[in-house]
């Protein structure tokens, strides 16, 4: 054909471009995850992947189902707003299987994490210089962790 006589090379070159572009589109159709674009410009299934991870902190609701006595003590006291695992650590395994008992806590280390005196803490928050305050005695010698105020009948 006359039209291709001196333009044949250009058409061949252009054909390479068409092949390249098409293969990107074909590959794209094969590779792109199915749920991509389900909710927005991302893989919709990612939401489920993220939601499906197991929890490690069971949440106080789970604890309160069995440990009703503690709930009673605690809600009456100053630590009512402190959730169980804030001191006891992540216990989803224990909630799952109650025979999997958690380690005992050491109040000498635990309590000062919150109650060590510092000018940076809110003024009304109970805080002590541990050494002066207890003279080296463990905190639970005097304070019940679940209901710590001594005046409120918390002293042992």
């Amino acid at each position: 054909m006359a039209i291709f006589k001196d333009t044949g090379h250009l058409f061949r070159f252009a054909a390479l471009f068409v092949v390249g572009t098409t293969s990107i589109f074909v590959l794209r159709a094969i590779v792109t995850p199915k749920s991509f674009g389900q909710y927005g410009h991302y893989r919709g299934a990612a939401l489920k992947d993220l939601a499906d991870r197991p929890v490690k902190y069971a949440g106080h609701q789970a604890c309160e189902v069995c440990h009703t006595d503690i709930v009673t003590t605690k809600t009456a006291g100053k630590h009512a707003g402190v959730n169980c695992e804030a001191c006891h650590g992540p216990l989803a395994k224990h909630a799952d299987d109650p025979s999997n008992t958690p380690a005992k806590l050491d109040t000498a280390v635990l309590c000062v994490k919150c109650h060590a005196a510092s000018a940076a803490k809110p003024k009304g928050f109970p805080q002590v210089q541990a050494d002066d305050h207890s003279g080296g005695l463990a905190c639970d010698t005097c304070h019940k962790p679940h209901d710590p105020a001594i005046a409120a009948g918390g002293a042992k």
């Binding site: 001196d6 044949g8 061949r12 070159f13």
Partner: peptide, 12 residues
């Protein structure tokens, strides 16, 4: 590199 087309006529 020539895409197999060796046409180098003045018009091309």
């Amino acid at each position: 590199m020539a895409t197999g087309n060796l046409n180098i006529s003045p018009r091309a």
